[in-house]
Structures are given as structure tokens and as C-alpha cells.
Amino acid sequence: MISAQGIEKQFGDLKVLKGVDLTVKQGEVVSIVGPSGAGKTTLLQILGTLDKPNSGSVFINDTEIQSLREKELARFRNENIGFVFQFHQLLPEFTAVENIILPALIAGKNKSKSEKKAREILNFLNLKDREHHKPAELSGGEKQRIAIARALINDPDVVFADEPTGSLDSKNQEELQKLFFSLRDEFNQTFVIVTHDLHLAHLSDREIKMKDGIVI
């Protein structure tokens, strides 16, 4: 489903990625682990089309990302990729449902149908009673689950998550870990997760270990 070949990335004189190859299958939960400075987040951003490599190629479902023009790339990203970050990045003035449907509205989807789907996702995440709450009224774990709901609203082929449990306490970390696998089991959802959370990494179907810009 995802294939990356020969990914290199350089910032000035600093070579961050030094020829990374990897594949991810549909329905896998894959963790990318390694020390700080290993190139994990840079690789995730390239796989998620948020950044471009200096050389190498990325294919997602047989689409070569490097071949897409900017507008095509933005559309592909919106329709096929979900993102979850360490800090939820919810808009404070919007309710849970309003935050969740933003990617659907950007894609030009019907608002009422998107709201209905958002409520269905919230119900699955055990957050049905939080749909009208704004971020300031939610706990850290609830905010992160809302962020996951937002990532899922367009039925993405893959969700990329960057340290998704990093800002949570141990109880919420455990709940979020279970949620990734529930979503995989229920919907065959693919996750690629950069994490320092070794428990989450060990639970994953596969760990990709990085050091000094390469997969080891």
C-alpha cells in the first residue's frame, strides 16, 4: 500500500535521511522508533506528503507522490491521508463535530452528511456526549480522540501519527493505544506511527527502527 524507495533528505549540509526503503501493507499498525535526531519525523512528513525528499520516491496505492502537482497533491492528501499530531491542533472556537468535519468540508462534501458521519465516529470512540463541547471543555485524552476522528472523517487509506501519546498521562496513553488497534480490527485502518512510547511500539504489527537517518 505504501512503498518508499531510496528516500534522502538534506537540510543545508545536514543529511537527515540517507536512503530509506520501507513498505507498509493495508491494515498494518507500524511504529517508527529510534533516538531523537534519527530522522523519524522527517520520514513521516515525507511519507505523508507534507515534505518532499531530495531524492527517492514514495508510492501510496500505486500513486507516485512526486508526480503530482501542488493542487493534485493537496487533493490527494485530503482524500487519502489522515494526520494525528502530539498536540491535537483542534480549533478552539469550534465544537468537536465542527473540528471533525473540517477535512470533509475542504473536500466539498455535504455538511449534514459529514456531521452525521462525525457523530457515528464519535459514538464508536465513546464520545457521543461530547459532540457540542469545545476543546477547552475536553480532557487531553478526549481532545486526542477528537483529533483521530478528524483524521478518519474522509475514510483515509492511511493515518500518520507523530508522537500521538506524547502529551498524555499513562491512563490516556493506554486508552489511545487500544483505540488504534480497535480501528485496525474494525475498519482495516492502516496506521504509521512515530513514537517514543515503547509499549505502543511493541504492540504494533511491526517496528521500523531508525538511527542516524537509516533503517537498522
Rank of each mutant, 00 (worst) to 15 (best):
L102E: 15
H88T: 14
S55E: 10
S67P: 08
L91E: 13
L90A: 07
K71E: 15
P92Q: 04
S55Q: 11
S67F: 14
F76D: 07
A104V: 08
S67G: 08
I100S: 09
K71G: 03
N61S: 07
I100G: 10
T95R: 07
Q86F: 03
L102T: 13
E72I: 10
S67H: 11
I100D: 09
A104T: 09
F59R: 06
T63N: 06
E64R: 10
P92I: 02
F76K: 06
V58S: 01
V97H: 03
N80F: 05
K52C: 12
A96K: 01
E93V: 14
R77Q: 07
E93D: 05
L73P: 06
N54C: 13
K52G: 09
L102P: 02
F59S: 05
G56S: 00
E70M: 04
K71R: 15
A74S: 10
F83G: 05
I101W: 06
N61V: 11
T63A: 04
A104Q: 04
Q86V: 07
I60R: 02
E70N: 13
Q89S: 15
I100R: 03
I65M: 06
F59Q: 10
E98N: 10
G56C: 01
V97C: 13
I65A: 00
G56E: 00
F83P: 05
L102S: 12
Q66S: 15
F76V: 10
R77S: 05
H88Q: 12
Q86W: 04
E64A: 10
L73D: 11
I81W: 09
N80I: 08
E70V: 01
